[in-house]
Design a protein around this nucleic acid. Structure first.
Lengths: 329, 329
DNA sequence: TTGAAAGCGCTAACAA
DNA sequence: TTGTTAGCGCTTTCAA
């Protein structure tokens, strides 16, 4: 049996109320009383029981990270990074974290309900009705790696626009005038930002700003390779391809190989994500680094601000990206 | 304010004890009473408060997954897979999961203490003294991806020996007689199994079973590439290299390229992990698939068995591997 | 600054 | 089969 507040009270000779205060409002108990309490606690290896505390306080200090995503690999490198950031930041505070993956709404709903969380960080493609229900239930909600227009909810995203710009300007700086982009089927927000960035940046540099240079495909090696085969067989074939993630960029490299084109001499390729595979590829893949860790940390910060009742919580937090130039471009 | 058991009691006209029973021991309340209770609960959107329940039961039904690992990328693809399995299996039961990474013991200790967990799954390199302390504190403990001799504790591991055998026999089947293995600096258990497997399997097939063919290096592309450069410059240079993970295998492919050797014609390469990068490499990497998901699920099962007081919990659970042959061999 | 006491929402032993 | 009741370990008024 673990020691309780009563044991500490008895040993230190003060009431349980004082012991309680010593732990949760130390400044409200006299210096020497406090010392007595802590000494007794030390002797007994006492630490407050979080369950009982939650019960009395009617607060759990518990938050959830809910990844709304389909497919087998829920926790891919990207979300694992976000997750790491969230864990790190949660550990630093007194909050507790429950992680759940939920393609379906029932699981999601259960998680937030049964686990008694007070706030949730939604990753992936959370549907607006899910969000609404959570908010109705009086939960604090933050979106990570997503943004939904017209919804009163803080979100933390990476600088999609800036990331595309960095990649494109790098390629343009290398002299490329005919650049294609592989757009994966990501969320509307991400896709929107990337289209906009591609068109505006190419135009700003006097290149033909044409959606013909944007190719929509699945974010898989094969789908990207096929898309590239088509791109590279055009009359005016691109000399550089910007993949919407590293997997697609790898597909582009494969397409080049099949056509006997050398990377980067005949075709420059850049990716996005800066995943661990970049260094494994040959040539190594230039990629836009996304600070997933930071995104995770910031989502926790926003959620805690919300929970603390702060009124000026930023609606949009943009995490900068950084280009990592390697052999493929 | 959420509805409580009292609200349901009032609305359904039965005592709170009966409501409680209806939820936790349905078979102990009469059919129609039960129906009344559930109807009232439905109307009120009631569901039992887990905190209060834990308080009364003096049980939390909460387990922790503790990844004991150094370095920036705690949640790599491997552990993310295990984590997914753990989450999936935990979701299926009424248990709650808290995930924590802990290179240091303090965090680990805190996690299990403050979060009031009843059992922990230890991933990575858990030190024996950590384990002992957890067990002393009367917690159920299971090891995943590790095994420590002489310790009374269930562990779930992948079939390291079998994995090495599959890779080697595949290469031998392809006619290779001079095979080298890159051993990463993994845990003593894993390293031990792999050495043993390499020596026994090569010997069994009449190849020179010599530790000279095993090269210890860091599990990074660069370290592996260097190690291979040395291997490939030997008089009797290997015609096949088995990397201890996919990253090292990628390093081997790079070494081959630098020496102008073609893969797989001049040098066959196989990896281990079957990570997502396999399909991105060129040629695609043959690799031994590890069923991380399953490992995670089984660790939860073992932990729950322990928690349920079962006495015949298997001490060692071995998860089979499977060779995925691709272009690199 | 400290203490007494009333909960927080539920379970489980016991009684009916 | 159902109800009564005494906790579970803590926080937080309120009074001293």
């Amino acid at each position: 049996m673990n020691p309780t507040i009563y044991d500490v009270s008895r040993l230190s000779g003060v009431s349980i109320a004082t012991v309680s205060r010593a732990f949760s409002n130390p400044e409200r108990v006299r210096e020497d009383t406090r010392r007595k309490v802590f000494e007794a606690a030390e002797v007994l290896h006492y630490s407050p029981n979080a369950i009982a505390r939650a019960m009395a306080r009617q607060r759990t200090d518990k938050i959830a990270f809910l990844i709304c995503k389909e497919g087998a690999t829920i926790l891919d490198e990207f979300y694992a990074g976000i997750c790491t950031g969230i864990m790190r930041e949660t550990n630093r505070s007194d909050f507790e974290l429950v992680i759940s993956t939920a393609a379906d709404w029932d699981t999601a709903s259960n998680t937030s309900k049964n686990k008694q969380v007070e706030g949730v960080i939604l990753g992936g493609n959370a549907r607006p009705d899910m969000i609404a229900e959570l908010q109705n239930r009086d939960l604090a909600v933050v979106l990570v790696n997503n943004r939904i227009q017209g919804l009163d909810i803080p979100c933390v995203v990476s600088d999609e626009y800036g990331g595309v710009r960095q990649a494109l300007e790098h390629l343009i700086g290398r002299g490329h005038r005919n650049i294609a982009m592989l757009a994966g089927r990501f969320s509307p927000y991400i896709l929107g930002e990337r289209y906009r960035a591609f068109l505006e940046v190419t135009q700003a540099h006097g290149l033909p700003a044409d959606t013909r240079h944007i190719k929509l495909c699945d974010p898989t090696v094969e789908s990207a390779a096929e898309a590239c085969l088509e791109l590279l067989s055009r009359q005016d074939r691109p000399t550089a391809i910007f993949g919407g993630n590293d997997v697609m960029a790898a597909g582009a490299m494969k397409a080049a190989l099949r056509l006997g084109l050398r990377v980067p001499e005949d075709l420059a390729v850049t990716g996005l994500d800066d995943s661990s595979a970049c260094g494994m590829l040959e040539p190594e893949l230039t990629s836009v680094h996304i600070d997933c860790r930071r995104m995770g940390e910031l989502s926790v910060a926003r959620l805690q601000a919300l929970l603390a009742g702060e009124t000026d919580v930023p609606q949009v937090t943009v995490v900068p990206t950084e280009l990592r130039v390697r052999g493929s471009s």
